[in-house]
Nucleic acid binder design. Structure first.
Lengths: 213, 213
DNA sequence: TGGTCCATACCAACCAGTCGGTATGGAAGC
DNA sequence: GCTTCCATACCGACTGGTTGGTATGGACCA
């Protein structure tokens, strides 16, 4: 790990913000420096290249995401399916403010860099799949609890959930509205409800409608 | 526009290919020219700027997608829900070859350009939402036929389907495998099945009399 | 003869990365 | 205490390759 000084952290935070609004290729190092309030000389003291920055930013993002979701309030429920659905609801709840504020750094960069910068893309991909993996335990538990079997796995479903989230971001950028992403997450929540509804003793009913988003 | 000349078409096709592998910001005009087998002089005879090219490419993509899906074989089924599921299956079936060959130009560009090039992003967004709109009639028909009501609309669901597809592309880039996108489309198909399963006489039963759209 | 199409040479801006230099602070020696 | 020495952090002018875009001339039509 890198030695963390104020400037480094500021540069990494700035990178997340700038890349999420402009994309990776379009962000200039000077943009990042300006955003961080740091000079170019300082930048190149800490990072040897733009790609070096991107790799560090991916790790920074991974750490940020891990901590953020570890502390998030959706882990409270006793039922694993309820926790899973609470996760989706939480993802919906954080769709506030500017698009660049809730959009995924890793997803943005992977799409852009998967061919041009394989190492950077791999680091970002690791952040996504790693985050997906945090859902697998609950999915597995829910599958066992509700006796659900099908032609799919916990890993499958965890990745599908991420796909819906990532796709929601793209659609939100296309329509210019976070509501589109929220509506997609509603569909995802409905899917999870229906998928596990076949099993024993699911709460309430299987046909209820959701409250307005 | 006059696509009467071979060079223009070749440049537009080249743009789709290059942008889908490198992203918009990272594609150089000379890359496009090389891919098209055309010189820069010819390029600037037909397009006045890179942004002009991007706008034309978005329209080209839109036309290509419209024609491709209009001719696709998933419209044959009598039941609207069967047509919808056939669409998803078709989207799965075309996930072959290189990632850049089945990935969405519009989705890639929207993500990158939504802030930096609003007009280009808008053109790409139009291609996505326009394509989604082609599903709405079948969704509406299926909702009506199976008596499904919920806190969602045909437009909602059509956009959700696109979100899953777009998200699948990102996950495929992250995992390096089209199988991830296919698995996500399987989940989507399952969702559609479950969503409409509550209604009367799911397929296999009875006589269907709806003409194909 | 004038317009379309295309090629080559070229320009100017942009930007990643360099480089010579300064500031600060801590450890070691006296 | 004070000096010397060095390492880390930082600064900003500069450079050179890249690249979007232009200028110009010529081939080939109608």
């Amino acid at each position: 790990m890198r030695t963390y000084h104020q400037s480094v952290t500021k540069l990494l935070d700035a990178t997340l913000e700038v890349v999420r609004t402009k994309g990776y290729a379009a962000t200039r190092i000077e943009d990042v420096c300006a955003q961080a309030g740091v000079t170019k000389g300082s930048f190149f003291h800490h990072f040897k290249s733009k790609e070096d920055l991107a790799l560090a930013a991916a790790a920074h993002w991974d750490a940020h995401v891990s901590a953020f979701f570890a502390e998030a309030p959706y882990h409270g429920a006793a039922d694993p399916l309820d926790r899973l659905i609470a996760y989706v609801e939480f993802r919906k709840a954080i769709l506030t403010g500017d698009l660049a504020d809730f959009t995924c750094f890793a997803g943005t960069v992977v799409q852009e860099a998967y061919r041009t910068h394989p190492e950077v893309a791999a680091a970002c991909a690791g952040a996504i799949t790693g985050h997906a993996r945090t859902l697998e335990a609950d999915i597995d538990a829910a599958m066992h609890r509700y006796g659900v079997v099908g032609a799919w796995t916990a890993e499958d479903l965890a990745l599908h959930i991420q796909a819906v989230i990532q796709g929601g971001f793209i659609l939100a950028k296309a329509t210019g509205s976070a509501a589109t992403a929220a509506a997609s997450l509603d569909h995802l929540g409905r899917y999870l409800d229906l998928l596990f509804a076949g099993g024993p003793s699911r709460r309430g009913a299987g046909q209820e409608d959701e409250p307005p988003s």
